[in-house]
């Protein structure tokens, strides 16, 4: 399966989705002008992956900041991950960033996927 690899910019996150090496990560800042357009390839990639997923998947969110339009798309990403067997979310937040910790907790209440919280 093809690797999705997007370099991060000042307003878009770095994204690596690599089935073979088991790397699934969204990190950095997310405040794109058009969040739906930006996350479309991610959602498409996950849809393909869901039909032939690894036995277990650790999906990493290591976001420094995201705007509200991105938060809706992050929920869409999580919802797409929800039906994949062996899925687990690793939600990273900076140790003094209570808002990012709380954001992760809220997402965990909106989808049926186990979340593990980690600081960096």
């Amino acid at each position: 399966m093809e690797i999705l690899n997007l370099e991060g910019t000042e307003d878009t996150p770095k994204i690596i989705l690599d089935k073979k090496n088991g790397i699934f990560e969204i990190s950095g800042r997310s405040l794109p002008e058009d969040s739906a357009e930006f996350y479309r390839p991610v959602l498409e990639w996950i849809e393909k992956y869901s039909s032939d997923s690894n036995p277990s998947t650790e999906f990493v969110f290591k976001l420094e900041y995201f705007n509200t339009a991105s938060s809706k798309l992050i929920l869409d990403v999580l919802s797409a991950l929800e039906d994949i067997k062996g899925m687990k979310i690793l939600w990273y937040f900076h140790e003094d960033d209570e808002d990012m910790e709380e954001a992760g907790q809220e997402f965990s209440e909106l989808v049926e996927i186990p979340f593990e919280f980690k600081t960096y």
Binding site: S35, T68, K72, L75, L110
Partner: peptide, 26 residues
């Protein structure tokens, strides 16, 4: 505010203008 945020994010779709209707709540 937390409840309103969760209610909107669950039910919203991104508008033509690219907003999620969450800005003021946030």
């Amino acid at each position: 505010l937390k409840d309103l945020y969760k209610e909107i994010i669950k039910n919203t779709t991104i508008s033509d203008k690219g907003g999620a209707g969450l800005g003021f709540v946030d």
